[in-house]
Design a protein around this nucleic acid. Structure first.
Ligand SMILES: [Zn+2]
Ligand SMILES: [Zn+2]
Ligand SMILES: [Zn+2]
Ligand SMILES: [Zn+2]
Lengths: 162, 162
DNA sequence: AGGTAATTGTTATATTATTACATCAGAACT
DNA sequence: AGTTCTGATGTAATAATATAACAATTACCT
């Protein structure tokens, strides 16, 4: 039996409320373990990001945060984003200047991102074969990896078949 | 015997003048074949990008173009960059908002980019195993690929060993 | 030469992100 | 309780990146 939160978010059976709960509680646990503060603002921004599986822009987040934090300014958002990225709770989508919740923040964080041009949803995949091929290639090049951005743009299965 | 332009640009034997000549003449040929114009401005911008193997920012290019084109404005640069990207003559490095010459514009254009944090040089590699793993993974996900950005940040072999 | 499409000039503005410094809140110590 | 330190937030200004809109010019085709 598969838990609903493990289902791909394209699936009609995907229970997003459960998906968000899991993300938020995982975030809270990780921050506790690490002795860092998931403050109100940070939690609110993380919640806003998790409203969907779409990548969200910083200034869009700012607009959506303002009803909750009247004083919110660009720095408010960027600080929260910096924190969430540092803690591996969200991904920055480099090719969109946007941000998306990470569904595997307790495991390997860097993933392959499949970004749909139609629905704008981002599917993150561990893609072990890709990662190991990247390691091999880097090793051959004598290159020491610090971080990876592997972003594929195209059309997701849901948008193709509907 | 290996031609000098085929040598990795980290090598001390790398002849960059030759490297640039090849890039510019390839660009010219490709544009001829395709019936598109490599205008003066576009050629100048391409030449500026090829001054090194580092990724260059748009506004830095603008500053360097102005001595040659007094009227140059942001749109001037961004139009030239758009053209060069469309023609596969340069790469946009998404994770840096910067641009780098493409050394394989006559072949497969999308490549793995190894980006050094120290010398800022970008090494592009066809990385066939990585590409085929990406294809497999996308196929499994039912995802139709339009474009790829595969960008690895770290320390290059030259910076590690010097 | 005249008509057309592509390119460039020009101005303004939108979007994304950072810096610097002041203030505040909580923990740790005296 | 007061003092000090640290991390977080408030606030204002500005930097850096990118696009839109429309006019003028140039290249190209008949
Ligand atoms: Zn979900
Ligand atoms: Zn889609
Ligand atoms: Zn070179
Ligand atoms: Zn280097």
């Amino acid at each position: 039996m598969t838990s609903q939160t493990e289902l791909n978010h394209y699936s009609s059976e995907h229970n997003h409320n459960q998906c968000v709960s899991l993300a938020l509680s995982t975030a809270q646990s990780l921050c506790n373990e690490r002795g860092v503060l998931l403050t109100t603002i940070r939690y609110q921004v993380l919640t806003l990001i998790w409203e969907s599986h779409k990548a969200v822009k910083a200034y869009e987040l700012l607009d959506r945060l303002r009803p909750l934090q009247a004083a919110a300014k660009p720095a408010t958002i960027y600080r929260a984003l910096d924190f969430l990225i540092e803690q591996g709770l969200i991904h920055r989508v480099e090719s969109l200047n946007a941000f998306v919740g990470c569904r595997c923040s307790d495991q390997q964080h860097e993933q392959l991102l499949l970004i749909c041009k139609l629905c704008e949803q981002v599917d993150e995949r561990p893609a072990p074969e890709v990662m190991s091929a990247l390691l091999d290639e880097s090793k051959q090049a004598g290159f020491m990896i610090h971080s990876k951005a592997i972003e594929i743009h195209g059309i997701c299965i849901h948008c193709r078949t509907k």
